[in-house]
Simulated scan of single mutants.
Amino acid sequence: MENYFLDGTKIEANANKYTFVWKKATTKFEATLQKKIDEVYQEIQSITDNEEQELHVQDEMSELTAEQN
């Protein structure tokens, strides 16, 4: 070895047991997540429908009281 070169390059390795995910696990997680999203969307939709119905009833009540006066 006549010549020896050292450049000081540092390479970070990220290869521990938690850095990869099996495809089967991701598809299972995706299905579970989609189910939760659908449930939350349905809940939001029912709350919105109830609020719209309450507003409609309040509007009708205010119209009736306005007509009576």
Rank of each mutant, 00 (worst) to 15 (best):
E51F: 06
A13P: 02
K35C: 07
E51T: 05
E54N: 01
N69A: 10
E43M: 08
N3S: 09
K28H: 02
I44A: 14
L6D: 13
S46H: 09
A15V: 09
S62G: 03
I37D: 01
A25S: 14
F5N: 11
K35G: 09
K10L: 13
A13T: 14
I37P: 00
F5K: 13
N16Y: 06
Q42I: 02
K23Q: 13
E54S: 02
K36V: 03
H56I: 02
K28W: 10
N50T: 02
T26K: 15
Y41C: 04
T19N: 14
M61H: 03
T32Y: 10
N16M: 07
I11C: 05
F20R: 14
K36W: 06
I44M: 10
F20T: 15
Q34S: 14
E60M: 07
I37W: 05
L33M: 08
Q58L: 11
G8R: 04
Y4N: 10
K36C: 07
T48L: 12
T48C: 05
E51A: 05
M1V: 05
N14C: 07
E60F: 04
D7G: 01
S62K: 14
V21Y: 05
V21C: 09
S62T: 10
V57M: 02
A25N: 13
A25R: 10
K36M: 13
W22H: 13
E43Y: 06
T27Q: 15
E63V: 01
A31W: 04
L55N: 07
M1K: 04
A31R: 13
E54T: 01
L6F: 11
E39L: 12
T27Y: 14
A13D: 12
T9K: 15
Q58A: 11
N69Y: 06
E63Q: 11
E52G: 03
E67K: 02
M1I: 06
K10V: 14
G8D: 00
K28P: 00
K10I: 12
A13Y: 05
D7E: 09
E51H: 04
K36F: 08
T48N: 12
K23N: 13
I37S: 07
Q68P: 00
L6N: 12
E2T: 04
I11E: 11
